[in-house]
Write a protein that binds this DNA or RNA. Sequence first.
DNA 1: TATAAAAATTATCAAGTGATAATTTAATCG
DNA 2: CGATTAAATTATCACTTGATAATTTTTATA
Lengths: 213, 213
Amino acid sequence: MPTDSEIGQKETKGAQTERRILDAAEALFAERGFEAASLREIARAAGIRQPGLYNYFESKEALYSAVLDRALAPLSHAIDRFLLGAAPDELNSTLAGVITDLLLEHPKMSALFQRALQGDPGTHGNRLIKDWLDRLFGQAIAGMPSGQTDDSASQKKIDLVLQSIAMFNITTGFFLSQRIFETLVGGNVTDPEVVARQKALLDRISRFAFSSD
Amino acid sequence: MPTDSEIGQKETKGAQTERRILDAAEALFAERGFEAASLREIARAAGIRQPGLYNYFESKEALYSAVLDRALAPLSHAIDRFLLGAAPDELNSTLAGVITDLLLEHPKMSALFQRALQGDPGTHGNRLIKDWLDRLFGQAIAGMPSGQTDDSASQKKIDLVLQSIAMFNITTGFFLSQRIFETLVGGNVTDPEVVARQKALLDRISRFAFSSD
DNA sequence: TATAAAAATTATCAAGTGATAATTTAATCG
DNA sequence: CGATTAAATTATCACTTGATAATTTTTATA
């Protein structure tokens, strides 16, 4: 009994519900965090009752993991393409710009990631995000000596990590700052004009402020 | 019956407990967020039982507000001093550097602020942090026309806000990135050498990357 | 259409939550 | 010391949570 996805047929009923559940869970986990988002709330947003969730996910944690897996996939692919030097048709040449474009399509994902990163260590979600960031930042640190305690090399490595962390925090924090932006200038942070200025800022910072010494 | 704090006598028993409660609550609210941190857990960390909390705070929300009030006070004072042009004896000349020094004494406060900022709008905590940020960012935007829709002025304002948001996210995000920093270079983010490099980075960014046009 | 599998439902559970009341213990001060 | 207030305790409440079991409804397919 091959599944529909293997054949390529149209989405079956169950798959529809699963997608609705994932959508609802993603939004609520992002808005309220793992603990504060209740299964009954998620189920209601998905159009079913709470026990119905267990036809698709065996626990709240499993649902959370599935949400993160699905949300991280496009970002992982983007990094892969970027590291391969491909993506010549991308609108932006910098990695931060590419990620900004991706987050732009799902503005709530920044909150999801930050919450997972701050969440309990050892959690699947926490490990997932940390692995992803390791790969993301590893790009900048590639080729750096790790064991050696050579002073200038060690300082250079620290600088690279601090720069990577800064870029990550500016990029994701941009979407987390919607409320403040609204009270200060009004309008939405996802407005094309605003996004363009943010990307220009990212560009300036990575070009001018990242002298490695 | 004047209170001890009014006279200046030594801390009474109840005041000691209140401070222990605030310390425990600050740590747990920062680590797990408002909803996930339970009053029983906070009480246990403070050395009392859960109903004992109600001798000092009338509700969980009231305790949360008190934690934020106490945590924000030194930052508010720092901004005031900075805006008055005072603080000549400070180690740093930039506001971000000053705030970094303050957060350094209470590294968990960054998480507390971020959580409050992302929390439900209308909450006391959320309003508190937003007001604080308004004042913080208002420094940069002071004198900018608000009603006018003059194009270049409006763009300049957007740029200033984006720069302020970026600086805020780098400054607070630095302390939120402890775990990633540890897996990448090892050691603590609060290490003096690391903090010095972070402050240098903040300085470089605000000096070189903030051309307003 | 008949039937087996999938999907969703109702009812319920044990555990944990914030909060209240009543009570006991401890501290403070005339 | 003794009395009064402050501080902390035990016991308990109503409610929500994630999870299971049993059952019904729907979907898909032979």
